[in-house]
Each structure stands twice: as structure tokens, then as C-alpha cells.
Simulated scan of single mutants.
Amino acid sequence: RAAFEDEGALAVVLLINSPGGSPVQAGIINDEIKRLKALHNKPVYAVVEESAASAAYYIAVSADKIFVDKASIVGSIGVLMDGFGFTGLMDKLGVERRLMTAGENKGFLDPFSPQTETQRVFAQAMLDQIHQQFIAVVKEGRGERLKETPETFSGLFWSGQQAVEIGLADQLGSLDFVAREVVKAEEIIDYTRRDNVAERLVKRFGVAMGAGVMSALKAGAAPH
């Protein structure tokens, strides 16, 4: 928001280096970038360093153009839910699992309980729906530049050079290249929000400090 609201900023660059994360958080960021882009009428460019995969690519497609290094990792348009199943091992060890739930499906992600076919189908349907949401966002963001194949939305990922060839990215380029050749900016300003020393200390020791302060206040309070 600070970058968009700065009247001197000619464009906003999203510097991305991430293998992914939550589709919910990616969707929130994607929506907010598109809102700010329309509100302030400023171009947005995504610059990928090592990777923009999965949820990170979800964010990247909100940009007007995506620039990558030839060796960047790009794509992985898919959704996963992982876990473990230990029921066979427990049987071999003679361990009995005692799980009590209210609701017949409440424990279906429990790694020590067997997964039923109904539960598997339910989970797969949910993943498929989120995957379609991801696909829709990519298609909207890339438009006709996307050269769709049966593998595009399969969860595969590609090098930056391949990503340009198949339309997942626009061209090769670094942050300096985009600033110099595309935006024609004389200066790059980093708007990344960073905590100061005091804020980092509060976050790291907040609970202990808060408890200590409360204890001191109670100890020093005058009797009523």
C-alpha cells in the first residue's frame, strides 16, 4: 500500500522468491494487488528470483508482466494435502488407537486412524475445487499469453526460460533490468515492512515480558 500510495512511484514491483504456501493467503494478496492497481492506476511487475511456485505464482499472476531468471523455478499450479498413515505399523506393534470424537468424520485426518473411501472422496473434491479456483486466477491474469497444454495445470514446474516459452512468464529480467529498462526509474525504493529492534524484541519475548510487567504491577500496587 505504501508503494502504491507514494505519488513519486512510477510502478510497483513484486520481488518474489518463494516455493509457495497457503492458497488462502495467496488469494487475499492477489485480490488486494488488483484492487490497488485499479485504484492508483499504476503498472505492477513481478520479478522472480529463485522461485515463484504454487501460491507464490498465484500472487505473481496479479502483475501486468512477470519477469524471471532463465533458471528460476516457475509454476506448480496445483493443490495438495499431505499427511501420514500409521495404522499398519500400529498393528505390527500391537498398539491400540483410542480416539474419541463427536461427529463421525471429526478425526478423518488423524494419522493413526484408517481413512475411509468416503473421506478420501470428500477431501479430493475439496482439493479439486481449490485447484479450479487457482486455475481461474491464472487464466484471468495471463489471458491469451498462456499457451495451455494438458500439463499446464498438472502441478509441474518449469525453468524460467521454459516458463517464458509457454506463457507462464513474459520475459527474462532482474529487478535492476525492470527498473532501468521497463520503468525507466532512476531509483529503486524498498517498501518492505521491517520491524525495528524494539518490535522484534516484543514479538520474541512478548509473553515473558508481558507476564513480568503484570507481575511487577501487581507487586507494586498499593493496597486498597
Rank of each mutant, 00 (worst) to 15 (best):
L15H: 10
G103C: 08
E199D: 13
G88R: 10
S62D: 08
P150L: 06
S18M: 05
L109H: 11
L175R: 06
A9E: 11
A211Y: 03
T152I: 07
P111L: 05
N196F: 02
V79R: 03
D110E: 13
Y191R: 07
G143C: 07
E32L: 10
A216M: 15
L127D: 02
S154K: 02
E181T: 10
E181W: 01
T192W: 02
L168C: 07
A211D: 13
S72D: 06
L10A: 14
K92F: 11
R180V: 03
F86E: 00
R1W: 13
Y191T: 04
R193M: 13
S159G: 06
E7D: 15
Q124C: 04
L175W: 07
A185F: 08
D31M: 08
Y57Q: 01
G210E: 03
S22A: 13
A26F: 00
A185N: 06
I16K: 07
M100A: 15
S51H: 07
V178E: 01
N30S: 12
Q25L: 15
V164N: 01
Q119N: 13
E49D: 11
V197C: 11
Q171C: 04
V74P: 00
L201P: 05
P23C: 03
R35D: 07
K34R: 15
V12I: 14
F157W: 12
A169S: 08
Y45W: 05
Q133T: 10
A208R: 14
K42F: 03
F205L: 08
H224N: 15
M81D: 12
D110L: 09
R200Q: 15
L172N: 05
T192N: 14
Q132M: 03
Q129A: 14
